[in-house]
């Protein structure tokens, strides 16, 4: 595991997470994330061979309801909280392609 994150790596992670961050934050985050990952890295030494590889979600099993059509949230209620919507009843977003 890398012990030290560079400013460039932090910028790359921010890019993946779609976060526009000020330059000053990148340096601070490089320092903080390095500290946290060094701390969290202690688990590398734990012998986990006895654990199943399966990722467990918890004790409760999933329960499915009957596959019956039903009313869901009315369109106008869903649109009421949108930052931008049009008269046709759609969410609107800035230019997506080219």
């Amino acid at each position: 595991m890398p012990a030290r994150l560079t400013r460039e790596e932090v910028a790359r992670i921010a890019d993946l997470a779609r976060l526009e961050l000020p330059d000053a934050d990148l340096d601070r985050l490089a320092r903080e994330l390095t500290g946290i990952l060094t701390f969290a890295g202690q688990i590398a030494a734990v012998d986990t061979r006895a654990a199943e590889a399966a990722v467990e979600a918890g004790p409760a099993g999933g329960r499915l309801r009957a596959d019956v059509p039903r009313l869901s949230l009315p369109r106008e209620d869903a649109l009421a909280q949108a930052p931008a919507a049009d008269a046709a009843g759609c969410f609107t977003v800035p230019r997506v392609i080219g």
Binding site: M1, L37, A40, V46, T48, A50, E52, V55
Partner: peptide, 16 residues
């Protein structure tokens, strides 16, 4: 594998 998966394995041991 080094972080998330490893953490889930240790989590399974904690549960045990």
């Amino acid at each position: 594998d080094a972080y998330y998966q490893k953490a889930q394995l240790v989590r399974a041991l904690m549960r045990r």
